[in-house]
């Protein structure tokens, strides 16, 4: 029997999970029920100080947004992931992960589950890493439009059940995914739901 070429991970809404992927593989993130943002980060398996970088990717792309054919860079400007398939085309890379203070300071709710700790725990399962070194996330399916006067729209994702984005992996990575637990303001339809991460040797559906 050959080694299975595909591994699937189910991630509960509001919780997080870490997984590894090697250069040449594909990572697919699926919004299973729709209208769910998934905070996603990746770090170099061999150097946790090298992580995916939204600011450097933004400078590289000259855009807040990214889509098919775009390469996401690390904080050393190295290529980490390339978007090869995207059924929705609406994602965010400007909003920091929700963290304990997002809920305690902004909404008066201490102790709420949050993406920063979800992502940190997910990475920690595979590599020692300081929480300060958890990269600013790419928030898949999150919808943060530019509205009047350069303000940020706060709205739900437009993703439907089954929408997905597929990345080609360009570096050996530890990844983490957190279907965002934000249930107070628009962002996940006020109800966090589960997502799926798939690591495969071929582009799913192209076998």
């Amino acid at each position: 029997m050959s080694t299975p070429s595909t591994t699937e991970y189910l991630v509960n809404g509001g919780f997080g999970l870490g997984f590894t992927a090697t250069s040449g593989q594909y990572v697919t993130i699926v919004d299973l029920e729709g209208a769910q943002a998934g905070d996603f980060v990746a770090i170099n398996q061999n150097n946790p100080k090298e992580g995916i970088s939204s600011v450097r990717t933004r400078r590289h792309l000259r855009s807040l947004f990214f889509g098919i054919g775009d390469t996401l860079l690390s904080n050393y400007d190295n290529p980490m992931l390339k978007v090869v398939l995207d059924t929705i085309g609406v994602h965010d890379s400007t909003v920091p992960a929700c963290d304990p203070t997002r809920y305690s300071v902004d909404f008066g709710v201490p102790g709420h589950r949050n993406c920063l700790e979800n992502l940190h725990d997910g990475l920690l399962a595979h590599h020692e890493i300081d929480i300060l070194d958890v990269p600013e996330p790419f928030n898949l399916f999150q919808n943060s439009p530019v509205v009047a006067d350069g303000r940020t729209g706060v709205v739900n994702p437009s993703s439907k059940a089954g929408d997905r984005i597929v990345f080609e992996v360009l570096m050996d990575l530890v990844c983490a995914l957190s279907p965002c637990p934000q249930d107070i303001i628009p962002g996940n339809g006020l109800c966090p739901t589960e997502m799926k991460a798939i690591v495969s040797n071929d582009i799913p559906g192209n076998n």
Binding site: V95, L132, G150
Partner: peptide, 18 residues
């Protein structure tokens, strides 16, 4: 030294890119 000015948190605090 683990707490610092963050442009990212500043943006979301005011829902503004600018």
């Amino acid at each position: 030294l683990r707490e610092f000015l963050s442009p990212h948190h500043t943006r979301v605090f005011s829902n503004s890119f600018l």
